[in-house]
Design a protein around this nucleic acid. Structure first.
Length: 561
RNA sequence: GCGCUCGUAGCUCAGUGGAUAGAGCUUCUGACUUCGGAUCAGAAGGUCGGGGGUUCGAAUCCCUCCGAGCGCGCCA
């Protein structure tokens, strides 16, 4: 990668200046950072190393920069010029043939262009959504789903081995599932005219009425004569199974599928929960009090208080199961765990980390991403959860209304750290105030030009074969510069676990493309065949990069719109 | 009360300790006898919530205050 080459050039300059005494030898271990200047007039890349060194060497940063540039031979490098500017930045301008070579790289790597090895050797387990099977998948879950699925693509593109998992809280000792079962049982009885009420702390959402109606239609009144206990047993199972199936469908319609649905109940059946508790006891991290078993989460992870692992009624808590689950993840050979939770769970980070530490694993190998909420607006009014859906906004409704691509794109448009809000009317509009269409239009426009060429009988020539040096117009070079940044953007987005950077970047590509399109016609009168072929090749290059980019976001790249 | 997160243009949001804080929307003015106008060019719009501090340099790091959201169960 060209930034690595630049870093080497700078590092060599520092070493050379140290060697001949121009700079003190303790500059050797200076950290070399290559950045892209905010302002294009400062060139393609820059380094601030002179500013960083100025303090230790006791001279002005411009002076340091001058001495470094004097020790920087540029023959045979991609660098055309190295200039000192401002307080002491060294700005690099690259030769245009380096940009032209990027076209060949895109052509050779094709849909692998942008892939790199920055995360090679890592085995990452991404766990996300993991909504309780007590209601439909919500829009907030959708944000996590879009983020998790995009991270899977990003990590994979960076050479990591990635698995995705949805953790299903279906444990038999879950009071939530008890309530769900009791709520569904009541709805079922209501279908047959029995005046049974949903528990006051149960699930009031009307989706359970629909589910009860389905069950009633399928099996008839066979469960009416069971004892309440037996009926509750039947319905907790039925409710959970059907909710999970529904969740799976909703996520699939959103384009998100998991490598594995991991059932909490399996951890009890295998004895892993009991084993984990025993191990925590043996290690001295668990103690008895008031008839319950407690985890020393305060001492282990600075939690606000210790947490119960086993209640006095002998039921284990989800804390115990979660600890066992994460042990299970590590034992399967994953080197890094990433969990995506809603921000309302931030109070649970410390206790999970405590559980991981109590079982002898490094809590720092488990990253917990907390996503803030997403608020939907319609004409300036907040869209509220419906009673039908149990006071949430179902993801399925959003997908139905604005489509999968728009829903996913909007979920990835902003940093997960901020509470995002977006307007449904804008998201549906097919105009340029809709960022989804702007991104997809870039791809469709490239495809349109290439299609047009084909119709006119102009064969598309390979980027490696056309005369790339003909691409010397500022807009052509600017577009190439933008496309050549793709591998770096991918790497940085993966490192920061921030796919929203890519949605910002795709706009930059779109802008560069449209400007190029405006000023550099390929198929109009008066364009020489050689230039035409070079420009068509550049359209193909752009199309490939945009398709790869949209692919990382999980959004389709249409040929026509 | 304690803890976590967040306050950036009228609106929605970017911004990795660096150069004159950037986009989109909105408003206004324009563009090619259309390789797709779902586009492009230009203008307008800022005490980066307030105040201290660290630093050669702070929207970014620290402290404090103000405001918003969330969390503080032998629920998940």
């Amino acid at each position: 990668m060209v930034t690595d080459e630049l870093a080497t050039i700078v590092r060599d300059a520092v070493a050379s200046a140290c060697a001949d005494g121009t700079l003190p030898s303790d500059c050797m271990d200076a950290a070399i950072e290559i950045e892209t200047p905010r302002n294009k007039q400062f060139g393609d890349f820059a380094t601030n190393v002179a500013l960083a060194l100025a303090r230790t060497v006791g001279m002005s940063s411009r002076e340091v920069a001058e001495r470094l540039v004097a020790h920087m031979p540029l023959e045979g490098t991609p660098v055309a010029s190295a200039e000192i500017a401002g307080p002491g930045f060294i700005n690099f301008r690259l030769r245009t043939d380096w940009l032209h070579d990027a076209m060949v790289a895109v052509e050779e790597r094709a849909d692998q262009y942008g892939h790199n090895t920055s995360m090679a050797g890592k085995r990452i387990l991404l766990e996300f959504v993991s909504a309780n099977p007590t209601g439909p998948i919500s829009v907030v879950n959708g944000r996590a789903a879009a983020l998790g699925d995009s991270l899977r693509r990003l990590f994979t593109a960076c050479g990591a081995e990635v698995s995705t998992e949805f953790y299903v809280n279906d444990a038999l000792n879950s009071t939530q599932i008890d309530l769900l079962g009791a709520s569904l049982a009541a709805r079922y009885m209501q279908e047959f005219g029995r005046a049974e009420a949903v528990p006051t702390d149960g699930y009031q959402g009307e989706y359970l009425i629909e589910m009860a109606r389905d069950i009633a239609a399928e099996v008839g009144p066979v469960y009416c004569d069971l004892s309440p206990e037996e009926r509750s047993q039947v319905f907790r199972k039925l409710a959970a199974e059907r909710m999970i199936a529904q969740q799976r469908e909703d996520l699939a319609a959103f384009g998100v599928e998991f490598d594995r649905w991991f059932f909490e109940s399996s951890l009890y059946e295998s004895g892993e929960v009991a084993a984990a508790i025993e191990q925590m006891k043996q290690a001295g991290w668990a103690y008895e009090r008031d008839g319950a078993l407690w985890l020393k989460s305060t001492e282990l992870a600075g939690d606000g208080q210790d947490r119960v692992l086993v209640r006095s009624n002998e039921r284990e808590t989800y804390v115990a199961a979660d600890a066992a689950y994460h042990k299970n993840k590590f034992d399967r050979g994953f080197t890094h765990l990433v969990n995506i939770w809603g921000a309302d769970h931030h109070g649970y980070v410390a206790r999970l980390k405590a559980g991981i530490a109590a079982l002898g694993y490094d809590p720092d190998r488990c990253t917990i991403i907390l996503t803030q909420m997403v608020l939907l607006m319609r004409g300036g009014e907040l869209v509220r959860g419906s009673k039908r859906a149990g006071d949430i906004v179902p993801l399925a409704d959003l997908v139905d209304e604005i489509g999968r691509d728009a829903a996913r794109y909007y979920c990835l448009l902003t940093s997960y750290e901020t509470t995002a809000s977006f307007d449904l009317e804008t998201a549906k509009r097919q105009s340029n105030d809709n960022p989804v269409y702007y991104a997809q239009y870039a791809h469709a426009r490239c495809a349109a030009v290439l299609r047009r060429a084909e119709e006119a009988g102009v064969p598309l020539r390979r980027a490696s074969e056309v005369d790339r040096s003909l691409l010397a117009h500022p807009k052509e070079l600017e577009l190439l510069r933008t496309l050549a940044a793709f591998p770096r953007e991918v790497r940085q987005a993966a490192e920061a676990m921030a796919p929203h950077r890519l949605t910002a970047y795709v706009r930059v590509i779109g802008q560069a493309l449209h400007q190029y399109y405006e000023e550099c016609p390929a198929l109009k009168e008066g364009v020489s065949p050689d230039l035409r072929d070079s420009r068509l090749a550049l359209f193909e290059t752009t199309r490939t990069v945009v398709a790869n980019l949209l692919g990382l976001l999980g959004v389709s790249a249409p040929e026509r719109m």
